[in-house]
Nucleic acid binder design. Structure first.
Lengths: 195, 195
DNA sequence: CAACTATGAATGAATG
DNA sequence: CATTCATTCATAGTTG
C-alpha cells in the first residue's frame, strides 16, 4: 500500500500558481476562503448532520445556497468536504496521543466511538461528538497505540545514537504491524543550529 | 524579489484556533517548540538521512522517540516536515531568478504545459465523481441518510436559509434530476469565533 | 517597545 | 480516499 519509505519520488513540481499570466490581479485572492456564514453552514452539515459524503448534486445545491454569503464555487465545497474528511481521518491515524503513563497494551483495532467516515457512515444526527463550536482538530482521542516496541531509536542517549544499520527498507509491504525501523545514526548536528 | 511586506490592515482573525481541546490554558505556551535534541534529531533525519516523506507510522515512531526530549505530538512532527519541505522549495523558487552574473534566462511562460488551463477536472457537472476505486461510492441512490426531503436542518426561515422546501420530492429517486433541496437552517453554531 | 524574522499551525488546492 | 503542495495566519523570539 505504501511502497515508499524514505527516498526520492519524482515530485513533479506542480507549481503553476506563480505569475504565469494566469494570475488575476495583484490584489485579488485566488484562493477561496469561506466566509463565516459559509463556514458555519458547512460545519453544521458535516458535524451536526453527519453529512460527509455529498453527491455532486448536493454539492451544487450547497454551493448555490452558500453563494448568498460570498463567492464560492462547486469545487470549493467539494474540496472542503474532502479535506475535512481526510484530516479527521488523519488525526485518528497519526495524531492520537499516547498516554505516556506506562501501561501500553496492544489493544488496538477497536475504534470505538467517533466512527466518522471510514466506511459509509449512516448514523447521522446520532453521534456528533465533536466540538460543534469550532475547531475540528485536537479531537484526538485518548486511545493507546500499539507502538510499544520501538526499534527505531535504539538508545536513549543524550546526544548520540547507536547506529545499528538494520537498513530495513521495509516500507514496501509491511504486513500489519511491522515497524519500519528508521535507523538514524546521527551524532552530529550540535544544537547550535540557528537559534 | 517579492517581499511580502504588504501587510493586511484588517486582520480578520479568521484562523483563530480557539479552545478545541488542545489548548491548555490561556497564557501558557500552547505552541510547540522543538527542544535542541529534538531539533537535532529531526534535522538529522531530514538533511543527513534525506528523510523527507515520513509515513504516518514513521511519524509516530519519530514522535515517540522525541518524547524523551520534551513534550511533542505527532502533528508537530508532521508539521515540521511539511514546513521544512515547503520552505526549502520556496527558497529555491525565490532564487530562481537570482542575478548570477547577469545572464538570467527568463524562460517562464511556457515550457511544455501550455494547454492545461486551470479547469480542475472534477466531475461536478456529472454525478459521482469520486470513489473510482469503489470505496464509498454507494452513497448515492441507496445512501439515504436523511436527505429524502432534505430536512437537513429544521427550517425556520428566520435568517439563514429562507428558502422554503418547495419541492423535496424525496432523494431516493436519483433519476437524473432529483433536486435535493437542502434546507439549511442553521442558526446555531455560534462559531463566531472564526471571524 | 516597535519592527522584523523564523517557524509552528492551518487549510485550500491538487495529484494519483 | 491518501498524500502532498502552496499559501497564509499567528506568534515566539530576537534585534535595534
Amino acid at each position: 500500500m505504501e511502497p515508499r519509505t524514505l527516498q526520492l519520488m519524482e515530485q513533479q513540481t506542480q507549481q503553476q500558481i506563480e505569475d504565469g499570466g494566469n494570475n488575476q490581479a495583484a490584489g485579488t485572492n485566488n484562493r477561496w476562503a469561506p466566509t463565516p456564514p459559509q463556514l458555519r453552514i458547512l460545519k453544521g452539515l458535516y458535524y451536526d448532520k453527519g453529512f460527509k459524503y455529498p453527491t455532486p448534486e448536493q454539492i451544487q445545491e450547497i454551493c448555490l445556497h452558500l453563494k448568498q454569503y460570498g463567492q464560492i464555487e462547486d469545487k470549493n465545497v467539494f474540496f472542503w468536504f474532502q479535506n475535512l474528511k481526510a484530516r479527521e481521518r488523519q488525526k485518528l491515524k497519526e495524531f492520537r496521543n499516547v498516554p505516556v503513563g506506562g501501561s501500553l497494551n496492544l489493544n488496538f483495532g477497536s475504534t470505538s466511538s467517533t466512527d466518522d467516515g471510514r466506511s459509509i457512515d449512516l448514523n447521522f444526527g446520532s453521534h456528533v461528538g465533536y466540538g460543534v463550536d469550532g475547531s475540528i482538530m485536537e479531537q484526538r482521542g485518548e486511545y493507546h497505540q500499539e507502538i510499544e516496541t520501538l526499534p527505531l531509536f535504539p538508545m536513549h542517549g543524550e546526544d548520540i545514537f547507536g547506529n545499528m544499520k538494520t537498513t530495513s527498507e521495509g516500507g514496501s509491504g509491511y504486513g500489519g504491524d511491522s515497524r519500519i525501523s528508521l535507523e538514524l545514526s546521527l551524532n552530529s548536528y550540535k544544537d547550535a543550529d540557528m537559534a
